[in-house]
Design a protein around this nucleic acid. Structure first.
Lengths: 214, 214
DNA sequence: ACGATATGTTTACGCTGTCAACACTTGCAT
DNA sequence: ATGCAAGTGTTGACAGCGTAAACATATCGT
């Protein structure tokens, strides 16, 4: 009975305003990217006065940060799904499939949820540490860690020299991240989804070949 | 005598407000990126009333578009410099050097002028057509065209199969663009310049190897 | 010389983020 | 149980922003 009925909010207190504002903020980001996450509009949607937000977020940036973390978590979940869908097989095949899954999931999320994707990278915190786990998916591994794991597999099965391993995450990430941006609001934004998907695979081809080149 | 002395602006008319506002806008973008391009602040710096801007720009977005074009032109100029500094030699060496020059110049500009770089891609118009040439450097070739030229050379000297040529610009561009973003406000933003430059070269290595792989 | 047009100004409105002061509710200590 | 402190939501206010309408002044073509 701690959580009252959600039907009418004639209570003076809301119950879980923090969460409600975050949800509203995520909706706003989904609809229009980080710029659309407007404090007053979020409170309006929740049905509360503008300044109520300040009891839970220091300022608009704090709300946006929380939204960004939530968006990053959704990205992680989306990638997780691709990553876990890989069928078992010999190490090299699985390693290549893992890398491809991360890239494909990354770009697919950007295409499906461009607003959230932009919000996720608006204040691009460093993704090394999962940061209160708000940024990782159900597996607890952030997209960055999934990518790192895939690359470790590359080294383990001998298709990538270990000398080239350090910082290789950033090489792969650069290509996929840049491509995602080009697709969602760059010159490739007009490309039909099918064609864009084909180019996505070529981007990953390039990364794979570039990292495993002799 | 059409252009009066610039000393005092006790004239009712400004002379070249359009250009002055653009310059102020570019300064603002340089200092704080696209969000810092604020109409009222630009007019304030020029010493004119806020609404004077509306005689020359339809709205704030129009000003930002003009700033974006100017920033893109500066990017083009920076890349031109790297591109033209390539010493003559055999075709393959020159081709590889050209690709490297475009990538290096691109990232260097992002590092030297992060605000302008972000502004340049804020409303990322399609870069196929040079667009009233406001977007290209002194050579008249936009960065996109310079990249395309370099890739054409790859095909011409036989290190890249022509079947792989279509849309290869976007593969190379993705990697370099994504890396630039990771460096200026992503997780690599704390990396010392020297180390970042080393990774830049590795990104280009990856692109080169990925595009020319057997 | 004079009227049309271009250019800059003033005034005003609604929107935003945010501060300060106030009101209600809850929960803990007596 | 009572009463006070802390937590939470509201009201009112302010400055800054983009922008529309009405007005003022300069420039130019005839």
């Amino acid at each position: 009975m701690t959580t009252p009925a959600e039907g009418q909010r004639q209570n003076y207190h809301h119950g879980d305003l923090m969460q409600a504002l975050l949800a509203a903020g995520v909706d706003l980001a989904r609809e229009g990217g980080p710029d659309a996450v407007v404090l007053r509009e979020a409170t309006r949607r929740v049905g509360v006065s503008p300044n109520a937000a300040y009891r839970h977020f220091a300022d608009r940036d704090a709300l946006l940060d929380a939204v960004s973390d939530a968006a990053l978590a959704q990205l992680a979940t989306a990638i997780d799904a691709h990553f876990d869908a890989i069928a078992p097989g010999d190490a090299e095949t699985v390693a290549r499939a893992h890398l491809r899954a991360v890239g494909t999931g990354y770009v697919a999320f950007a295409q499906d949820e461009p607003g959230l994707f932009r919000a996720a990278f608006f204040v691009p915190a460093d993704l090394h540490n999962p940061g209160t786990a708000a940024r990782s998916g159900p597996s607890g591994r952030s997209p960055f860690v999934l990518l790192a794991d895939a690359l470790d597999e590359f080294v383990a099965c001998g298709i990538m020299p270990s000398a080239r391993r350090p910082q290789a995450e950033f090489l792969a990430w650069s290509a996929v991240h840049g491509f995602a941006l080009l697709v969602i609001d760059g010159p490739l934004r007009a490309l039909p989804r099918g064609q864009a998907d084909a180019v996505t695979q070529r981007v990953i081809d390039m990364v794979e070949a570039g990292l495993t080149a002799p």
